[in-house]
Every structure is written in C-alpha cells, then in structure tokens.
Design a binder for these strands. Structure first.
Length: 662
RNA sequence: AGCGAGGUAGGGUAGUCAGGAUAUCCCGACGGGCUCAUAACCCGUAGACCGAUGGUUCAAAUCCAUCCCUCGCUACCA
C-alpha cells in the first residue's frame, strides 16, 4: 500500500507588516523539508497563503487610509515576493480573503452546524458609542473577572492568563479611543470544542511532528476545554452563513485557508484536493511555537466535526531572539528579510544555511551578525566551498575535466552512510542534525584529499592521482544533491560545475552514488564569497542603531498636568497586620490604618518582607486607587515601594496616619 | 498562578528514558607542522564545579524531592 501524498503547509503570515527573520524560522525549514522529501521520491504539495482577516488589519488599514483588502494585497504581494527571493517555493500562495476560502469556510461552518457542533447564545458584548462599533477581542481593555487584574478582551494578559469569552470582561474601555464601552446584547455562535476531548486525547497521542507541539497540546486537553465563540461583529471577514451582520472569527477561516489553497492549487494543476484532506492523509503543518494551541486542538476538532481528515503532523519551530534579546519590533530587535538582508546583496542561501544549521528546530534561535559571519565563512565557505573548488580546480587543470575510472567502494560506502544519517534526521525534523551530517561529509572529503595528496601523487603515479580525484568528484556530486534542500542556488551552481546541464532538483538523492561520467568541464569558480569583517560590522551597526533609536523612543514618558497629579490621593498609613494570601507566593494581605479608616490592601512583597517586619511600620498609600480583587482578595489601595526588591517608602519623621502627601 | 519547552566550556550540541571510570562532537581561542586550494588537514594546549540544594546508590549530567532562571501560551509575533 502506498502512503497518501504529503501536503505541507506553513503558518499564514498576517498581512499587516513585513517579513522578518521570525517568519523565515518556520518557512525555510518547511521549504527544505519539502525539497528533501521530493528528492526522496515523495509526492509533495506545498501550500501557504496570507492571513487577511481580523480587527488589527481593519485598524491598520484605517490608519493608512486604504481598504482592508488593499492593505492585504499590499502585504500579500510583499510576502509572495520575499518568499521567492528566499527560494521558499510554494506550489500555491493564496489569500484567505479570496473566494475559494470564503466558500470553503462557509461550507465547513454549515457542515458543523448540520452535525450539531454549533449553537447560538446571547452575549453581552462591549460596544464603543464613540467609534460606533462592537469591540472585539483585543480592542477592549478592562478588568479580569477572575483575578481583578487589567486584562484584554480575549485574555487576562497580566493576571491569571485565563481565556475570556466576549462579554466576560469588566469595566471595558475602547482601546482605540479610550471611551468607556457599553455592553450590548448580541447573538453569537459557539463551537462545541468541549465535546472533542475524547477524540483529541487518543488523536494527539499518535500525532507526528515535533514533541513540543504534541506535549503542549496534550497538556491543554487534560484541562477542561471551553467552547469557542466563533463569530465577530465586523464588516471585514468571511460572513457567517445567512448572517450579514456577523463574520467568523479569524482563527476559523485562517486554517481553513490551508484547504482552500489546496483547492486553488488543484484547480490550477488539474488535481483533486480531496486526496489531501479527506480520510487518511499526510497533512503536515509547519508553524511557530506560539500557535500550537490553535493547530493542535481547535483545528483538528474543527476538521473532525466537519467530517474532514485530521492533520498528520505538526512541526513547531522555536522562537527567534536577536542579540540575546526577545524579538521585538518596537525595541528594535528585529531583522527584516528585505531591508536588512536581501537588499544588502546577501545571498538567500547563507541565511537558509544559518537558520537550518544553528540549533535544533524546536529550540530558541539566538541571531547575531557576528556568529552569522563566522559560521558562513568557516563552515560554508572554508570547509564546503573549498573542498568543491580544490577538487574541481585540480581535475580541470590536470585532466581538463572529470577523469575516468571507478569510484572506490569505501567512498561509496561513506556517501551511503551519510545519506542514511541525513534521512534519519530529516524524518525527525532535526534539520540541524541533517546539515551537520552534510558538512561532515564535506569535512571527510577534505581529510580524504589531504591524506591522499593527489598533487604529490601526480608526480609519480598519474593514474593513482586520477583515482583520488575521481573519488573527490563523487563526494562533490553527493554534496550537491544533499545540499539542494538547504542551499538550492549553490547546489545548482555546484551541479553545473560538475558538468551537468540539467537541474539538480530533478534528481533523486540516491543519485549520489551514481558515478559521474568522464567529461570535460570548464574551470570552476569558487561557490561562495566570504563575508568581510567590515560587512558584518556594518550590518551589526545598523541593528545597534535601530535598537538605540527604539530605546530613545520608549524612554519618553508622557507628561502629566498638575491637575492630573492632584487626582491621586496619597496618604501615610500604619500597617496593623500582614499575612500571606493563600496559594500565592508573592502576595501579602495588609490591614492599614489610614487615619479615617482601616483599609485592606494586597501587596506583592511576600518574598521581601516577613509579616512581623511590616506590622507597626508607617507606609505610603495611594488611597483612591480603584478596588481590585487579587487572588480572590479585595485590595483597596496601593502601598508604595521602589525598585524590583520593593523597598518601602516610609516617612522621614513620624506623622499621623492619614497625613496627606503633597 | 497554571500548563508546556528548555538550562551541559565563549557559541552550538551529544549523552538523560534503560545510572558506571579522563562528559561527546562542531565552531571559536592559543601553539606547532604541512601547503593543490578563498585554504584545508594533522598534532598539541587552554576552557564545563553538567542551573541550585538535598536525597537514593559502591557509583549521578543521568533516578527522586525541593527550588531558581529563560522562553512560549500572554502587546508589537512565525
């Protein structure tokens, strides 16, 4: 029985910003994987597309004074071009706003409804009277109903981390204009995710891909699964069937895009998309580690509920750091694919190599220009490039091409050993291991030519020298084939220099042990150009400059007027008692005498003070801070303290509790 | 807070499930040799209290317990 064809997808780039290194961390390995599997004789289709829906794009488009569609098309074209420049070659790169996806999404939602997985419910939703629109998800800020901390519309981001359904948030404010939002009743549709627990557990147990994705998803399943509200009140998006006032949540139509893009590809090429999506399949999703939940839980449940096949594998890449700092556009720790790399004339192959060879696919990748330059020069240029060049240079000089004769079985065995090792790593999505093994073969080549020294041998035994070079040429051929998934442009150039006129990408990797025929070749040129120290420094300086500029911006703290300051009621108080808040490591519950009354205040200073140390101390309290529940304990004010170790501010000379601070 | 993934020389890694002796390999640093090549290769040197503490054991990077730190879920995110 033959396996079903492979369908490989990448997480969809969102069309409100340009392509950066973080994107490539997922796309380059996916492309290498696809290329490799094709060289191994697999039927592979590789699809992706841009993610166009959701509120952030509406807001960005409004700011830019264009329509969301125009905004999406702009970045869609940008990603499409950038991927091509990086030689990430999708068979199809679609848009989630295209008709195929509107159709597929509506079909799937209808199927879910028919199968009883969707129900209606009235929710109280935040509405901004000033902007005259409902405020979805992240465009509402307020207080978490669970822990009382500041939260966003869809998630308690600073407190307990719980997911919030629309309408749950307290004291909602419009993020755009800051107006107090109202609640309005609205009919929404929910997906019964909770019913899929029994399906998901055994399914996730057998899912292929990287362990980080699998473990993370299983961890979530063990907890309770909540139903998902899958509609939003927005103009931009895929309309919910028979409801003109609602669109589906972007996380519904975005993954369905994978199917729609397959359909578009199938239509273009005369194939049947159902082979990939119905029944047993080998759908493999390459994603960033931040969206495992959606791909490991929500998406398989959606597919299952609508009667489609479920994903075969989820491959989640680790995140990217820049110069040991968290990747951040606003802080300047970012590397733009075009501006910072390709437009500087740097070859796509170098970056592809670096991304694949730096560390394990699931681990964090810490980018730095210095290490980039070092590794390119030492590994790619010196070891790999030098071996190929010295081999072909010598062959051309002495024999005007590839000499005749047979390849040593020991050399063939070494190549075969390498093929097996590389395959083992590729099957496990361990791209670093695969690249290291390829480089080890190049190093083996260098050692072999070195110890056999054909340049000496040729003075006494021309045939023996030819035999050594014949072997080196064979290793070069193997390297070109193996390198193609990693550095396609270079591999093709190497292939050409070996005297072939066709595409290396059209050959199976197993050709690596097929002998290179005796032939004339042209004088070779080095495959790579070294990274100059100055060039590396220039690139690094640019990054440092951007970080410095970003720092300046963030240092600017806005001024407050005297009137605004006066709104704060700050007084002295005396701590009457202090006890730890149950189940919390950091919180203390304080009773503080502020003159007119005794206030209960929760303060995050358990790790810095013992209860006895605090009782009787005079402290400084903001008394008119809005009350909040923290860990279920009401807090009516804030005790002022300085720095990370919470050094308490205390009166210099004794004062009565309740003295106003001015 | 919870749940996941991590923490091994300057960087990157192997080893951890199935405990054994000087902790692997690659890059970088230093010294020497060799030289067909954008140089590689060979020989040698330095560099790791294997995140911390405690426990089990004749023996712990590995097993157990507790804790610390980083990252993700959780702005700008793949």
């Amino acid at each position: 029985m033959t396996s079903p064809p492979l369908l490989v997808t990448c997480g969809l780039p969102y069309t409100n910003g340009p392509c950066h290194l973080g994107h490539l961390r997922t796309y380059v390995p996916a492309d290498a994987y696809v290329r490799y599997m094709r060289r191994m004789g697999e039927e592979v289709v590789f699809v992706c597309g841009s993610d166009n829906h959701g509120t952030p794009i509406v807001v960005s488009a409004e700011e830019a004074g264009i329509t969301p569609r125009a905004m999406s098309e702009r970045y869609h074209a940008h990603f499409d071009q950038t991927f091509k420049r990086m030689n990430v070659m999708f068979d199809h790169f679609g848009m989630t706003d295209n008709p195929a996806n509107h159709h597929r999404t509506q079909t799937i939602v209808a199927e879910l409804e028919k199968n009883g997985y969707i129900y209606k419910q009235i929710v109280h939703q935040a509405y901004c009277p000033k902007c005259k629109r409902f405020l979805p998800d992240r465009y509402v800020e307020g207080t978490c109903p669970h822990c009382g901390k500041p939260a966003r519309g869809d998630e308690c981001d600073q407190g307990c981390g719980k997911h919030l359904e629309p309408g749950e948030i307290k004291d909602p404010l419009c993020k755009v204009c800051g107006t107090k939002a109202e609640f309005r009743d609205q009919e929404h549709f929910f997906f019964k995710l909770s019913e899929f627990k029994d399906f998901l557990l055994p399914y996730l147990d057998t899912i292929k891909g990287t362990s980080n994705a699998k473990n993370y998803a299983i961890g979530w399943i063990k907890d309770e699964l909540h139903d998902w509200c899958i509609t939003r009140t927005l103009e931009w998006g895929v309309k919910f069937p028979s409801r003109d006032d609602l669109v589906v949540y972007v996380w519904v139509d975005a993954p369905i895009g994978y199917i729609a893009f397959t359909e578009e590809w199938a239509k273009k090429t005369g194939n049947d998309w159902k082979r990939f999506w119905c029944g047993e399949n080998r759908v493999t999703h390459f994603i960033g580690g931040d969206i495992i939940y959606h791909h490991g839980i929500f998406w398989p449940a959606l597919l299952k509920g609508a009667g489609y096949g479920v994903p075969h594998a989820i491959v989640a890449s680790g995140m990217v750091k820049v110069d040991d700092h968290k990747f951040s556009k606003s802080r300047g720790y970012v590397v733009w694919t075009n501006d910072d790399y390709l437009d500087k004339g740097l070859p796509a192959d170098y970056l592809r190599y670096y991304l694949l060879a730096y560390t394990s696919h699931t681990k964090e990748l810490n980018f730095s220009w210095k290490v980039f330059g070092e590794r390119i020069n030492n590994e790619v240029v010196n070891i790999f490039g030098n071996f190929v060049y010295r081999t072909l240079y010598f062959a051309q000089k002495e024999w005007e091409g590839i000499p005749g004769g047979v390849v040593d079985p020991a050399i063939t065995a070494e190549i075969e050993k390498c093929l097996v090792t590389v395959n083992g790593y590729m099957q496990e999505y361990e791209f670093k291991g695969a690249v290291d093994s390829i480089m080890a073969l190049a190093a083996f080549g260098n050692t072999y030519i070195q110890t056999n020294a054909p340049w000496k041998l040729i003075k006494t035994d021309r045939a023996a020298a030819a035999h050594v070079i014949k072997n080196c040429v064979q290793i070069t051929k193997a390297l070109a084939l193996l390198l193609e998934p990693v550095m396609p442009m270079t591999a093709q150039e190497c292939w050409k220099q070996l005297g072939y006129y066709d595409q290396v990408a059209n050959h199976p990797i197993s050709d690596a042990t097929h002998p290179v025929p005796e032939a004339c070749i042209k004088a070779p040129t080095p495959l790579f150009v070294k990274m100059e120290e100055e060039q590396v420094k220039e690139l690094d300086d640019l990054l440092q400059k951007r970080v410095a500029e970003a720092n300046k911006k963030t240092e600017k703290i806005p001024m407050v007027t005297f009137e605004e300051f006066q709104k704060l009621d700050i007084r002295t108080g005396k701590v009457l008692s202090a006890e730890p808040v149950p189940k919390s490591n950091k919180l203390l519950k304080l009773q503080v005498d502020i003159g007119t009354e005794t206030r209960q205040i929760v303060a995050g200073m358990q790790q810095f003070y013992k209860s006895e140390e605090l009782v009787g101390k005079d402290v400084v309290v903001v008394t008119n801070l809005a009350p909040a529940k923290i860990f279920g304990v009401e807090s009516n004010g804030m005790v002022l303290a300085a720095g990370d170790a919470a050094s308490l501010l205390v009166p210099f000379r004794p004062v009565e509790p309740g003295s106003k601070i001015r």
